[in-house]
Design a binder for these strands. Structure first.
Length: 575
DNA sequence: GAGCACTGC
């Protein structure tokens, strides 16, 4: 017996293999050899049990995987599936996989009602405390809670859950001030969020000095992604930043939102890893009991679905709207994804993958817009440049995230800044890095993140291999940035926006939906405000910001996607 | 004048 183990971190890897399995079924089905064929025998020997861990986290990949497994199980009744999940989700998971009713009707084999097995957790007991009255300012409440823990409780480090960098910086500053003014000693405040440079993140793991108490101020990175030792006290603000996608406007919002009970339990559990601990929740018990949602909204209902749809299409699942999800995404989001893929030429009139474009785009483990940009670069003869850009766009940031030395960072950026925009600036940085012989010193001098650049090189190599496999020649345009910009437009034409005439504050409107948007301050075109641009993504906080923008000629938009812009743009684009 | 967290290759 072999076991498939699809853990959160391995899901990507396992998905490839599930894909192989599915394709084989489609194949054998097509030949009418569903059971007992060579292929099927091979696969039933190959795997008889599949286990999915951390299913309660409801990430995009686990939800797709669960939907696929249910589909697979219908064809492979002998297949055993083990879903490991938090207690809170067990029943709904079981209900999702419960096909017993139907099966009995069809008199196909034994009852297949899923069994729920309960396994005791390994953690120590964590005592929970609530506030008596709702708090109005959770950063202040956090600090007073930390100070009183420090006063009244025995040794042990404190982990504080906040929402983002702003909160964390504010809290650390406030704690430093309060501790100073009240003469309190022995507290070591440490920030933790993903944008933090590597060396600073490592501080979190360094042992607490003797007689000191470490206070880690963290985003929800410490909730599931990494484990901290030595935590005895947890302070839970009750909030986190969450991404919400609006399919009508096609915009992703990053908003501070209340966490779910499942998250609250997960956070509390972080206090009980080494010995019995305590968790201080900065909300009332009544709120927890009666108002907090049981589980968070699954990622699939908060996301743009283009990648997801293309993945399923590539598996041969054509009836996307009828796919059985653990939680169904909204029809609007589905339709929007289909519409975007159609406009990219990835899907045809029957919503089937086009050949070769659709199949080629599906080969890349990237956002389909980026994959399309790579394919377009082939004809324009700038694939060398475009895969560098594609690799850079899939990295969070190539700049060193520093606060306080903002001016120096901006000046460093100017050395690479290109009038065309951010994508071309990336090319300049990449060129400089290669010319420096991939030197970390060079990076340091130029405020470039060395680890990020190594990653860019690595991803670029992989993209190069895929393009070669697809038979795309690696041509360079030798400095012809118009070709590069056209290739970007071929993928991102839907993300075009135009500077509002007479705008004094750099307001743009998106061509497609006339949304009010602004160039992100991190862009080299910030304050430059060229008339027509195409952006990579929108980030929405208090305003809608376009991140990574490039200047375009509006005629390229209609050229790249006549069907897409025909009706809506007629009036706004000069011919 | 601003960045919750993750993933593919």
């Amino acid at each position: 017996m072999s076991v498939w183990y699809a853990e959160k971190k391995l899901v990507g890897y396992s998905m490839c293999d599930v894909r192989t399995m599915c394709r084989s079924w489609e194949l054998s089905f097509a030949f009418g050899l569903l059971r007992g064929s060579e292929l099927c025998t091979h696969f039933s020997l190959f795997s008889s049990v599949i286990m999915v861990d951390e299913a309660h986290e409801r990430s995009l990949s686990t939800d797709i995987l669960l939907g696929l497994l249910k589909k697979i199980q219908r064809r492979r009744p002998e297949l055993r599936i083990i879903i490991s999940s938090a207690t809170i989700e067990a029943k709904s998971m079981a209900a999702f996989f419960n096909t017993s009713k139907k099966r009995r009707e069809q008199e196909q084999g034994p009852t297949r009602e899923p069994a729920i097995l309960s396994v005791e957790g390994r953690g120590f007991n964590v005592e929970i405390f609530y506030v008596d009255d709702p708090v109005s300012d959770y950063v202040r409440a956090v600090i007073s809670t930390v100070l009183s823990i420090h006063d009244q409780e025995r040794t042990g480090d404190i982990l504080v859950f906040l929402t983002g960098q702003d909160d964390i910086d504010a809290a650390i500053q406030l704690l430093t001030e309060e501790a100073q003014s009240s003469g309190k000693q022995g507290l070591v405040a440490v920030p933790l969020y993903s944008g933090l440079p590597r060396a600073d993140q490592d501080l979190v793991f360094s042992p607490t000095p003797r007689g000191k108490r470490k206070v880690i101020f963290s985003t929800n990175i410490a909730e599931t992604s990494l484990t901290l030792e030595g935590i005895v006290y947890v302070v839970d603000s009750g909030f986190s930043k969450q991404r919400f996608y609006n399919p009508i406007s096609d915009i992703e919002n990053l908003v501070v939102a209340p966490i779910s009970k499942a998250s609250a339990r997960q956070r509390a559990g972080r206090a009980g890893r080494v010995r019995p601990g305590k968790c201080f929740r900065l909300y009332t018990e009544d709120y927890f009991a009666s108002e907090m949602s049981i589980v968070g909204i699954p990622e699939i209902q908060r996301s743009n679905l283009v990648s997801c749809v293309i993945q399923l299409k590539a598996l041969g699942i054509d009836n996307i709207l009828g796919f059985d999800w653990p939680a169904s995404p909204s029809p609007e989001a589905m339709i929007r994804a289909l519409e975007i893929l159609y406009s990219l030429g990835v899907l045809d009139d029957d919503a089937k993958l086009t050949s070769p474009t659709g199949f080629q785009v599906a080969e890349f483990p990237l956002d389909p817009l980026i994959s399309k940009m790579i394919l377009a670069s082939c004809e324009l003869g700038c694939t060398e440049e475009i895969i560098t850009i594609a690799a850079t766009l899939s990295i969070q940031s190539i700049w060193i995230p520093v606060r306080g030395v903002q001016k120096e960072l901006d000046e460093a950026k100017l050395r690479f800044a290109a009038a065309e925009g951010d994508h071309v600036t990336f090319l300049n940085v990449y060129k400089g890095f290669i010319q420096s012989n991939k030197s970390s010193k060079w990076c340091h001098k130029n405020f470039v993140n060395y680890h990020a650049m190594r990653k860019v090189i690595e991803v670029r190599e992989q993209l190069k291999r895929i393009t070669q496999r697809l038979g795309i020649g690696l041509k360079s345009c030798e400095g012809d940035m118009q070709a590069v910009r056209k290739a970007i437009t071929a993928g991102f034409f839907a993300n075009a926006s135009r500077l509002e005439p007479f705008s004094h504050n750099g307001m743009y409107k998106t061509v497609r939906t006339s949304q009010e948007v602004y160039i992100h301050p991190s862009s080299v075109l910030f304050r430059v405000n060229p008339k027509w641009i195409v952006y990579h993504s929108l980030v929405s906080t208090d305003r809608q910001y376009m991140r990574n923008v490039i200047t375009v000629d509006p005629s390229w938009l209609t050229e790249a996607a006549p069907h897409f812009y025909q009706k809506q743009m007629h009036s706004s684009i000069p011919q």
